[in-house]
Structures are given as C-alpha cells and as structure tokens.
C-alpha cells in the first residue's frame, strides 16, 4: 500500500466530480460534483503533505474545508431562490439569457 494509491484515488474522485458537473442537469447534483472535486483535492493535499513530510498541505486542506462551507452557503442560497421562482433546479430550464 503506497501513497500513490491515494493519489490515484484522488484523481479518480476528481474526474468523477468534473464529469458530474459537465454531464448532470440538476443544479444541486452539479453542485455536489463541485464539492466532490474539492474533497478529492483535499485527499491529494493531505497525501502530498505526508509524502513531503510537512504540514503545509494539511493546513491547506483545512482552508479548503472552510472555503467549501462558505461556498455551500452561497451556492445553496442561489439555487434555492431560483428553485422557489421556477419550481425547477434543472440547468437546462434556465435559459432566458441565451440570445
């Protein structure tokens, strides 16, 4: 069991998250994809911190968690306000701005 496995897992999770963002149509699911990308990055950061034997990566992971929480607050506020207006959270329905 080497540390490389964690990095591979992190890359797989990140790709899954990116694919979710690009392929899924529900804003909440898309947003969850973004969160998955952030958490995959955290795994990579912590693994690299272990590889290099210093704590910077772990500190960075903490900051990422805080920022992700703030992002959830803002993101859910926006998505919920849109859902209450349109009774839908599909990103395909939201197309008034196409000109």
């Amino acid at each position: 069991m080497t540390l490389t496995h964690y990095l591979v897992l992190s890359a797989i999770l990140f790709s899954l998250g990116a694919a979710t963002v690009l392929l899924r149509r529900n804003a909440i699911i898309v947003f969850m994809g973004v969160e998955l990308m952030l958490n995959a990055t955290n795994l990579a950061l912590v693994t690299f911190a272990r590889l290099h034997g210093d704590l910077t990566g772990q500190v960075m992971a903490f900051f990422v968690m805080v920022v992700a929480a703030a992002e959830v607050v803002v993101g859910l506020a926006i998505i919920v306000s849109i859902f209450r207006t349109r009774k839908s959270a599909s990103v395909d329905d939201i197309n008034l701005l196409k000109s």
């Binding site: 998250g17 950061l45 290099h52 990422v64």
Partner: peptide, 11 residues
Amino acid sequence: ALLLFGIALLY
C-alpha cells in the same frame, strides 16, 4: 475547483 487541484499538484 480546477485551480485548487492545480494547486495540489504544484504542491
């Protein structure tokens, strides 16, 4: 999120 993963790789 892309930027962040880039940061992780540079680290």
